[in-house]
Structure formats: C-alpha cells, structure tokens
Amino acid sequence: MNRRAPSGAAVLQPAITAAITDAVLAELLERGYARLSMDGVAKRAGAGKSALYRRWRTKQEMVLAVLAKISVPLADPADTGSLRGDLRASVAAVATWLTEPPFSRIIPDLVAEATRAPELAAAIANTVGEPRRALARTNLERAIARGELPADTDLEMAQDLMAALVYWRMVVRQAPVEPDYLDRVTDTILRALGATLT
C-alpha cells in the first residue's frame, strides 16, 4: 500500500535545489561572501526563502554545502599506477580548482573572509578542506604501499606541499605559468618527499 506524504511535509525538489545552487555561485561571484544574503539567493533562484531554510540553517551552511558539493569531487585522486602520474594529476586538479571560474574568484574572497572570521575558517576546513585532503591522501598511501615513498612519510606535510606551490604561484603571486610548470612542480614534490621511482 502506497502512502502519500502528509500535505505539510517539506519535499526537497531537485530542480529548486539546482536553481539555488546556481544562484549561490552567481551571488558569490557578483557580491562576494560578505554581501551575499539569503534574500538575494532566493530572489535570484526564483524561490521563497523557506526553500533555502528547509535545506540549510544559515548562509554559511548554505554556501559551504554548495561549494563542497562541487569542489570536493574535483580532488578525487586519479589512479595512474605511479606516484609521479598521480601527483601530476593532483597538482593539475589543484591548478584547475584555483584558476578556473567560478572558483578562481570565489576562493580568494572566502580566504580573505576566513582570516577575519575564525568560525568561517573552521567551517571551510571541515566542509571543504578536510574532505579534499582525505581524497588526496589516497595517492600518497598507494605510493607507500607500492614502495615509492618511505613508510614514515609525513602525509600532512606532503599534502600541504602538493597544494602550496601551485597556490602560491597562481593565486598569491599571480605569476606567469610556463607550459612545463606543473611538470616541474611534480618533480620538485617527488624530490622533496624522497620518492623512489622505478
């Protein structure tokens, strides 16, 4: 016997969620995190504010849920069969995440906001940063299992290194990136980690 949902039950319609997601990204690009509002997102999405609050309790929760849904899968590590191949794919993914729209404009804004709001910084780390790092850690654990990295490799430091070179060059310095830049980054990381490649 099929039961109908009670008439007052909230049903999260995928089309509305998609419209809200698009609206959040558009508002972040146009207004930045500080000026983004639930009212503005609802208006742009063509939805009532109640549709937003059925999904998320706060602006912060909404923004980070949208960003995590898109950006965390981008860190899913490629399994190329070698540490060098895996690292090259990972640094390329970081470069894409940092330099292509919409994240190329959204991330610097969020980083700036996070420096002024410790609770936002913690939420970004928990919602976006740590899930991305957990995926990236898989590359390094596979390399240890294959004997390409020492068993005592500092995985936290290695993950920082994988992103730091690209972030500093492309986002902080906004320096030119030569065609072989990501290859050189990969080789630098391999040397720094004391990789044994066959």
Rank of each mutant, 00 (worst) to 15 (best):
K59E: 07
K59N: 06
L64G: 03
L67C: 13
R88M: 06
L87K: 07
A65F: 02
K49R: 15
D79G: 10
T58Y: 06
M62I: 05
M62R: 08
T96Q: 11
D79R: 14
R54S: 09
W56Q: 13
W56V: 12
Q60T: 15
G48K: 09
K49H: 03
Q60F: 04
S71P: 00
A78T: 12
L67P: 12
L98K: 06
R54Q: 14
A75V: 01
V91I: 14
S71D: 08
A93T: 04
P102Y: 14
T80L: 09
P73F: 04
A51W: 09
A93K: 04
D79Q: 13
G81H: 11
S82N: 03
R84S: 02
A92N: 06
L87D: 12
A51Q: 14
A65T: 10
T80F: 11
T80R: 11
L87Y: 09
S90W: 08
L83V: 09
L98S: 03
E61K: 15
A93C: 00
T99N: 05
A68D: 00
A65S: 15
A51F: 10
E61C: 12
L74S: 02
A65H: 10
A47M: 03
A78S: 12
E61M: 12
A51G: 07
A89R: 13
K59G: 06
V94W: 03
E100S: 11
T80C: 09
G85P: 03
R88P: 14
V72D: 02
L74G: 01
D76C: 10
L67S: 05
D86I: 12
L87R: 08
D86E: 13
T99S: 04
A47N: 04
E61N: 13
I70A: 12
V66H: 05
W56E: 11
T96G: 07
A93V: 02
D76Q: 15
D79F: 06
V63G: 07
R55S: 11
W97S: 11
R54T: 08
R88F: 13
L98D: 01
